[in-house]
Amino acid sequence: TDVTFHVNGRNLHLKGADEELLRRIEELIRRGADIEELEKAVKEWEK
């Protein structure tokens, strides 16, 4: 799945995201995470 999140005026584009990653990103956004936290979560998922 390709999806782009718009967070605090910045874009986080995910290519090939699975349901697990999407749920994790949505949860972080609900908690008020900043873009750096979201990018870190994506990097951890990519490993």
Rank of each mutant, 00 (worst) to 15 (best):
N11Q: 15
L28V: 01
I25G: 00
D2R: 03
L21S: 03
R23M: 08
E36T: 07
G9M: 02
H6P: 03
I35E: 01
F5V: 11
N11F: 15
L14R: 00
D34A: 07
R24T: 13
D18R: 04
V7Q: 03
D18S: 15
G9R: 00
L38K: 00
N8A: 06
L22T: 07
F5Y: 11
D2P: 02
W45Y: 14
N8S: 05
V42H: 02
R23I: 08
N11S: 14
A41M: 08
A33G: 05
L22G: 01
D18M: 03
L22R: 05
L14G: 00
T1W: 14
K47G: 14
L28C: 03
E37L: 09
A17I: 10
V3W: 05
H6G: 03
T1V: 15
A41I: 14
L38Q: 00
A41N: 07
R23G: 11
A17W: 06
E39I: 14
K15W: 06
T1K: 15
A41G: 04
H13K: 05
R31F: 10
K47M: 13
V7Y: 09
V3M: 08
K40G: 10
A17Y: 06
A41Y: 15
D34V: 08
A17V: 09
K47A: 10
R30E: 10
K47R: 12
E46I: 10
E36C: 05
I25C: 05
K43W: 11
E46K: 12
E26Y: 10
N8Y: 03
G16P: 01
D18N: 12
N8Q: 05
A41R: 07
A41W: 08
E44F: 08
L21M: 07
T4Q: 03
E37G: 07
V42C: 03
E44Y: 08
R31G: 15
A17Q: 02
E46V: 11
I25E: 00
R24E: 10
E27S: 12
E19A: 14
R10E: 15
R23H: 10
R23K: 14
E27F: 12
T4K: 04
R30P: 01
N8I: 01
L28H: 04
E19Y: 10
G16I: 07
D18Q: 07
E20L: 12
F5R: 01
E36V: 07
F5N: 02
V42S: 03
K47D: 13
I29C: 04
N8F: 02
R23A: 11
T4M: 06
I35H: 04
E36R: 06
E37Y: 10
G9P: 00
V3G: 02
D18P: 15
I25R: 00
D34T: 12
R10D: 14
K40D: 14
V7N: 03
E37W: 06
D34F: 08
L38E: 00
N8R: 04
K40A: 14
G32F: 04
E26P: 02
E46N: 13
E44D: 14
R24S: 10
V3R: 09
K40T: 12
G16Y: 08
K15Q: 07
L22C: 05
E26D: 07
R30G: 12
D18E: 08
L14C: 01
E37M: 13
R31I: 10
E44V: 09
T1F: 15
K40F: 14
H6E: 14
V3D: 02
G16T: 06
L28F: 05
I29L: 07
E39Q: 08
L38I: 06
K47W: 10
N11L: 15
D2A: 03
E19M: 13
T1Y: 15
L21Y: 01
K43M: 11
E44L: 13
L22P: 00
N8T: 02
L12Y: 11
V7P: 01
F5K: 02
T1G: 09
K40P: 01
K40L: 14
L12Q: 00
R30Y: 11
K15T: 09
I25F: 04
E20P: 09
K15A: 06
D2N: 06
H13M: 08
D2G: 04
F5H: 03
G32M: 04
L38N: 00
R24K: 09
E36I: 07
H6F: 06
L38H: 00
A33K: 10
T4P: 01
V7E: 02
E39A: 06
D18C: 03
A33N: 06
H13D: 04
L28Q: 05
H13R: 05
E46T: 13
W45K: 04
T4D: 06
L21D: 01
E37V: 11
L14H: 00
E37R: 11
G32I: 01
I29H: 04
W45P: 03
L38F: 04
K43E: 13
V3T: 05
E26T: 12
E44H: 11
E46M: 09
A41C: 07
E27H: 10
E39H: 07
N8L: 03
F5E: 02
L12V: 04
V3P: 03
N8H: 05
R30W: 11
F5T: 02
E39G: 05
R23C: 06
E46L: 10
V7D: 03
K47F: 13
F5D: 02
G9S: 02
N8M: 04
I25S: 00
H13N: 07
H6N: 11
N11G: 04
H6M: 10
K40I: 14
E36M: 06
K47H: 12
I25A: 02
E27Q: 09
E20Y: 12
V42E: 01
E27C: 13
E20C: 10
R31K: 12
E26N: 10
K40C: 05
G16L: 06
G32Q: 04
E44Q: 10
K43G: 11
I29A: 04
L14V: 14
E20G: 14
G16Q: 09
I29D: 00
N11C: 15
K43T: 10
E39L: 14
R24P: 00
D2S: 06
E44G: 08
L21Q: 03
K40R: 13
V42A: 06
G16H: 08
K47I: 13
R30Q: 12
L14Y: 02
F5A: 01
D18V: 05
W45H: 11
G16S: 08
E36F: 07
L28W: 06
N11W: 15
I35N: 02
E39D: 05
T1S: 11
I35K: 01
E39S: 06
L38D: 00
E44K: 08
E39W: 09
E19F: 11
A33D: 04
V7S: 02
N11A: 14
E44M: 09
L38W: 01
G32L: 04
G9D: 09
E19R: 12
E36P: 13
L28D: 02
D34W: 05
I25V: 09
I25L: 13
K15D: 05
E20R: 07
